[in-house]
Design a protein around this nucleic acid. Sequence first.
DNA 1: GGGTAACTCTGCACGGCGTACAAGATTGGA
DNA 2: TCCAATCTTGTACGCCGTGCAGAGTTACCC
Lengths: 221, 221
Amino acid sequence: MAETRRKPGPRRALTEREIVDAALALLDAGGAEAASIRRIAAAVGVAPNAVYTYFPDKAAVERALVERILEDVQAPAEGDWRPAVEALAIGLRSRLVAHPGAVPLMLGGPMDGPHALRLGELLLDLLAASGLDAASAARASYTLMVYVLGAAALEVADGPPGPLPPEAERIAARHAALGEVPAQAFPRTAAATGVMATWVGTEQFLWGLRRVLDGLEAAAK
Amino acid sequence: MAETRRKPGPRRALTEREIVDAALALLDAGGAEAASIRRIAAAVGVAPNAVYTYFPDKAAVERALVERILEDVQAPAEGDWRPAVEALAIGLRSRLVAHPGAVPLMLGGPMDGPHALRLGELLLDLLAASGLDAASAARASYTLMVYVLGAAALEVADGPPGPLPPEAERIAARHAALGEVPAQAFPRTAAATGVMATWVGTEQFLWGLRRVLDGLEAAAK
DNA sequence: GGGTAACTCTGCACGGCGTACAAGATTGGA
DNA sequence: TCCAATCTTGTACGCCGTGCAGAGTTACCC
């Protein structure tokens, strides 16, 4: 086959990884609008259009960013399917809320990269061991993905931090103290959906997750 | 109280509603990037910055757009809580997938407009009649919102239409024939989550919705 | 009726965005 | 040593959101 002999031309000053890491840092620090091609290029010290040597367009950078985040979602330990699925869901959510700016990117395009596929297959394997038939396991997998991504999206939907009402301030501080949810991810959205702000966050996520799993388990009977 | 006497100045050439309707038409026709302030202004026949007489900034237009869509989500008929909740969820989803470009906007900011609150309260009322205590009803309401919005987001995540693989073409045609999901909303995303493309759409939505409701009903016992 | 203050819309401009194109610099292989 | 491939840069284009000054229009007060 074609061997990997170096091709002519100057050596690359960067790697795709360096670019994605810089983009992720900018995204975490300044939100979506901070992760522009021009600022990413400035962060790694090249001209803006040099980025196009590594990625065909901005959408490709964003896809790589999503993959970069999914990359460090850990597979849960072996064991019963239900705690394993729960652990996987918790792990995925924690990576998402750790990078609030990336959640819209995940929901904004098809998730078909290697790590997305890996997690999808993993989830499917776990559910196949639950007693659900193959078709239902696939549907259950999609249902869970909807829940985890939807929960992360709603948690993150409030955008950059602004003046919060006093009650919200207190809650945001509690979340921050738990070290799980950055303060800017505090969901004002919760008010519109009828749930008291106090409950949102990990607790609310787990409550809903367990109801979903109850429904799936009942279908497996 | 302060009566509504007209203030000095020329009469407005437009209404907020006309602007929002034009924005929605552009959004449906050309996706998110077609709904720019400049193009909205051109569509209604004014200079770009005239829009700022009606809305303080683009985010306000987007919030109004979201409200405009939630506005025609119908309240379900009276009756048992479970079919009513199901009907509400189906109705909300149908409005969302009818305007794919608006889904990222809904997930991109706090949903605290009047119609969002109306739907939240409606859902909460229905769940309060399910046997769940008040706290659980609120959590259940949030959980369902996560499911419905998350499902819409994943369905819509594939972006503007492009060349589809043959299998996908067939499915997209089926969806279009059902008259429910525009062809461009066909979810390639489904592949990554392990569910066969055939199942995605209304059927998949309902399957997952019923599992979630099963879990909630069991909690109500 | 005339003056005034409020209001709406326009022209212009700014800075930022993604990205196309051509030219120069750098490298390996013939 | 030259060639061809490759990378980076300078420059430029068209778009974006939106601030500012000015011109035109209207309702109220005298």
